[in-house]
Amino acid sequence: MKSLKTYAILYLIFLYAPIFLLPLFAFNSSTIIAFPLESFTTEWFTELLTLSEMHGALLNSLKIAVTSAVLATTLGIFAAMAVSRYSFPGQKGIMGFIMLPLVLPEIIVAVSLLIVILRMGLDTGAWSVIAGHTLICTPFAIAILQSAFAALDPSLEEAAYDLGETPASTFRLVTLPLVMPGIISALLISFTISMDEFIIAFFLTGAEPTLPVYLFSMLRFPKLLPAVMALGTILVVLSILLITIAEFFRRRGAKRTGNDTGGFL
């Protein structure tokens, strides 16, 4: 086990190596992204403030990510409730299909949606990115919510019915508060996925780029690369923060019943 542990630590270093390099270059005064480092600067972070196109892209991305997260979590709640409570004909097939975007290459989702949109004579835009992101975020939301719903004791809901509550008020007063940690976790994960997604946005964004699409275009200009490093640092810190909060809520939900499966995937 000892040599395995050494291997595991080396493996973690390999996993984190690129991320650790990011702040080194983001705070380095050299305009070339290479060693040796020169001196400390925050210049690249202030440069980000001057890139007005980036601000538009950021707003666009936020708008898309919030909408996709809400839609994917809502769709996730329906599906997770259906599979954790009821069995229905064709359950395996239907759920397998809903979860398909987990393994389907994103470029397939992107081009097939693009074709349908163009064939219908519509124009791509933020709405089509939202449609695509909702599709790929829903399986993640379902995976998280399913364990939240499975953990729920059905007798609590039955008690509410017996006390005269309607299905709607039972859901609002009993079910929803109990699965709330799962819902928050699903929202945060979906938001993070959408904020970060590139391929679908690249095909479907139209004239207004999302943040990753704008970032991709920045990579072609060597002059902008230090600013890319600064932007990347901020994005990585934010993702880690969001994921940590999501994990906190997911675990709090899991702890109530003691069935912690250990991860989102």
Binding site: I19, L215, S239
Partner: peptide, 10 residues
Amino acid sequence: TIPFWTSYLI
């Protein structure tokens, strides 16, 4: 899993 959630492009 953390590195998986950070920007793929970056």
